[in-house]
Simulated scan of single mutants.
Amino acid sequence: MKEQLTIIENTNRKPRLADDQLAFGKQFTDHMFVMDYSIDVGWHDPRVIPYEPITLDPAAMIFHYGQTVFEGLKAYRTEDERILLFRPEKNFQRLNRSSDRLSIPTLDEELVLSYLQELLRIDQDWIPTTEGYSLYIRPFIIATEPNLSLAPSGTYQFYIILSPVGSYYREGINPVKIFVEEEFTRAVRGGTGMAKTAGNYSAAYIAQQRATEKGFSQVLWLDGVEKKFIEEVGSMNVFFKINGEVVTPKLNGSILEGITRLSIIELLKDWQIPVVERRISIEEIFQAHEEGRLEEVFGTGTAAVVSPVGELTWNSRQITINNKQTGELAKKLYDTLTGIQTGKQNDPYGWTVEVEK
């Protein structure tokens, strides 16, 4: 049964930055959604309240054992002023898979989607109208029990916060430079690589920092055992077009199951373009380039949608892909996905959900 949603309006509204002044994830809307969990009651007390700091006991278990999961999706404003979400049910399904892995109680996916839609109705004026901009949605769960015992928390809080954003990469749809990481490991099979949890990302900071200092936009991670097989980019899944066939690393328990990744695969199949999910080594990619068979490389994710890769550096070897130009397929995929997301193209797949005003 759906519990009554409490709404407390923010009477001190914040000024909005102009769209062209927005940096990714730096400004937040006037309200946020909160819901509590306890073992005796379960998930309860859903509420929309003014955006504000979170007050927690210093012994809250999130601080000590990192028991937390999160998601990322976007709301788009169409030219005719509708508000669209892109496959939001997939995000909440993945949030629950992440929660299972981190021993966090799962949510009722339909209920939290309805609560999200109410939050969006309240803060709908924050959704940018400029092309290429959107409202980023960050749902997350944290362990809140004040307890230093090494065991799952008995209490949690679920939040949704909203942030108007532009492009994730300064390059936009233009190709980025990627550094192949050999020293550090992001995740291994049996670990938490398939979950969206904080530790996966903070553990990657040192490699990302080194790559950034060398002028690269992102890190490409290899498998944690042999340091041979490609897994994913820091914030994206990755695809390679080789001799007309598109190849992406097979999900193996340490690779995040991206919603954009899934959508790309489904689009390619619908377009009758060969697409394969399999293990692929970094050596194979460099060999394909040497033989002139590597046509395109691109990453996919909620933040960037589709991001072409123009340069890969691995083991002091550097290759340039498609003359550092955006490939035809990457551009078509980007245009199609963003067209569906923003209502500029028909949605024959039923991927979008309209938020009633």
Rank of each mutant, 00 (worst) to 15 (best):
R189N: 13
E231I: 03
I264F: 03
E277K: 09
R77S: 13
P152S: 13
R47I: 12
G193T: 07
F92A: 05
T260N: 04
Q4V: 10
Q67R: 12
L111Y: 08
S263T: 15
M32I: 08
E295C: 06
G154V: 08
Q4N: 14
G343W: 12
D80R: 06
V180L: 00
L268S: 07
Q341N: 10
Y334F: 05
R87C: 12
I319P: 05
K74C: 04
N96D: 09
V188S: 12
T192K: 12
E226K: 03
Q4K: 14
P249M: 04
V355W: 05
V219H: 00
V225K: 11
E109V: 08
E291M: 14
N322G: 04
P50F: 14
Q21A: 12
T6H: 10
P53S: 15
G224R: 11
Q157I: 10
R138Y: 01
G191A: 14
A303V: 00
M236L: 01
V180R: 00
S99P: 05
E283M: 03
G327M: 10
L73G: 06
L162F: 09
S307V: 02
Y168C: 02
G299I: 00
V247L: 06
I264G: 05
Q67G: 13
R317P: 02
G132T: 07
K269D: 10
E109F: 05
P308M: 01
L135A: 02
I104S: 04
D270L: 02
L135R: 07
V219A: 01
I104Y: 05
A304I: 00
T155E: 12
